[in-house]
Write a protein that binds this DNA or RNA. Structure first.
Lengths: 198, 198
DNA sequence: CTTTTTTTTGAACGATTGTTCAGTTAACGT
DNA sequence: ACGTTAACTGAACAATCGTTCAAAAAAAAG
């Protein structure tokens, strides 16, 4: 056999990326073989190489796409002047964006070490650009006296770690709705930033 | 050749676990081969099987040891009645313990999915016992009105995620000392818990 | 010194890895 | 209807994987 009925790169390409994302998230990049990905799509392993030059680039493309989506969604928001409002919006944005893409998030945080040096640099640059947005909000609030923070750079990382951590335990089937969880985290972020109590 | 000069299980055993820990942390469990571990120790791959029944158990033993050490160190502390003091001590304990063992921490958080079902259950139980200690502190403080938290279980996970996140960026060569970083995080944890401002 | 035990080697096992490619067939353009 | 292009198969490649084990040599015991 050769080309199969209904085969089309517009269909197979996305299905390959989807299968790779799902498998990488569940078992880890190194533990997943090209043949497993191919089997999930219903295709032979050789066919994958019409869509990616190699396994490593397949991983990178997934990460890059995720980070690009993240930055695009963040920068689509119009700026807010009030630091407290900006921090609340960032908190809710980060949580909902991440909770909607658990697989992509998992990969972005776990598979950095499996990137080549060149690919790592690109992803890391995007991550820093994202961090910088939160850092600016905290710095501005600090300057206005709305926030009390001894170190903005450390606080930035601490807040992001706290927020991203939600993906390790939140399930839609759980007791709390996504909105309720956002609310709980927002109160904690507000307190961590040293904003005056309500 | 066969048995080598100076060979002794009291020496080789620990060296194998140390090499495995270092390599697993740097490249990930699935990406490290038994031959790489053996090479780091200066031994042939077959010799590893005098010390572990298989690769999977080698990983589990590292994780189990780490969690046991963590629980032992935590429970060696005498109880504190004051919730604020207890939270501060927990914060500093968690940070310093984790910063002293970056490799073990990395493995404990990244390689859970590479454990067999049985091994995972054991590690998860220890993790929950650890979480419960913090949850008790927060609940007690909440009851006394020292903390203001809308959900203790969520807050517990949020605080631990925030604190553990320090291991992803802190380096001894950095601008801040370990003590200074602890102080910054403690102020944020205190705020996140809703403790009244100083 | 001799015997027993402990530790390691080195080769081998079948299975699986990422990747390549000539051949084959479906889809598309004319 | 026919020729071209795009998509995929299936076999093959060398390399590497985790694991086993008889043989060998050092260490420990007697």
């Amino acid at each position: 056999m050769a080309r199969t009925q209904g085969s089309h790169s517009d269909v197979t390409g996305p299905r390959i990326r989807a299968a790779a994302q799902s498998l990488f998230a569940r078992h880890g990049y190194a533990a997943v073989s090209m043949r497993q990905i191919a089997a999930e799509v219903g295709v032979q392993a050789g066919a994958l190489y019409n869509y990616t030059p190699d396994k490593q680039t397949l991983l990178f493309d997934l990460m890059k796409q995720h980070m690009d989506d993240l930055m695009a969604a963040l920068e689509a928001q119009e700026p807010l002047n009030d630091p407290l409002a900006a921090l609340e919006r960032f908190t809710r944005f980060h949580m909902s964006f991440h909770l909607e893409r658990p697989d992509a998030v998992f990969i972005a945080y776990m598979e950095l070490r499996n990137l080549s040096e060149d690919h790592f640099v690109q992803v890391e640059a995007l991550r820093q650009r994202y961090e910088a947005v939160l850092a600016d909000i905290l710095r501005e609030g600090q300057g206005q006296g709305v926030f009390v923070l001894s170190d903005v750079a450390v606080a930035t990382r601490a807040v992001i770690a706290m927020l991203t951590g939600v993906t390790t335990w939140y399930r839609d089937s759980g007791a709390l709705s996504q909105n309720e969880v956002e609310e709980v985290y927002w109160q904690m972020v507000r307190g961590a930033a040293g904003a005056s109590q309500v």
